[in-house]
Amino acid sequence: MESDLRSELSRQGVMIVSLEALYNWGRSNSLWPLGFGLACCAIEMMAASMARFDLARFGAEVFRPSPRQADLMIVAGTVTKKMAPQVVRLYNQMPEPKYVMAMGACAISGGPFKQGYNVLKGIDRYLPVDVHVPGCPPRPEALIEGLMALQRRIMRQRLTGPERPRHLQAGEASELPVPTLGARDIEPPYHAAVWRPPRVARAS
């Protein structure tokens, strides 16, 4: 529809949108995060949800204590290898459509603990991460920007066709495999369906 006609109609009190846009608009403005913090990033996440920064302006103030009621998992903090299976399990328990935000250097890559013996080198090894929010820890403004980036991403989502999200494709598995704790390390080290180790291109 032409934008002139649409704006004229809206001036007259008639809203005309596609069902897809309406659906995406509704979803992007009622993202309920899982109340789930792993380290100091969670303090900034709490600050972002409180009155000073007021995440409620974006419809995301309802931190749910149960994964069954949450749409967005904010992985806020250091994911240790011991904790990683539980994080994947919580993700599996969330209903579709669901989104993951990796908050802070540790959740993105392991951060300052990357070369340690007990810290996962980024949660994107096991979960499909939609938004990475860098920082150590990120300021609440950065988290709000990450949430707005996710909202823009949801608004662009197609519900039909080959680009439709994973949960609308019939053949896709509904759950991600949960890694196990081995004798030396977490096994497997990553899920190939979600993540591949980077190929290093080097000039010989």
Partner: peptide, 23 residues
């Protein structure tokens, strides 16, 4: 701190960490 079934003691000086270096 480490999980049940983990072998080795990570703070020992002869502890060999898993070969999981990444770029």
């Amino acid at each position: 701190l480490m999980w049940e079934g983990f072998s080795g003691h990570p703070m020992r000086k002869d502890y060999v960490e898993p070969d999981d270096y990444e770029y």
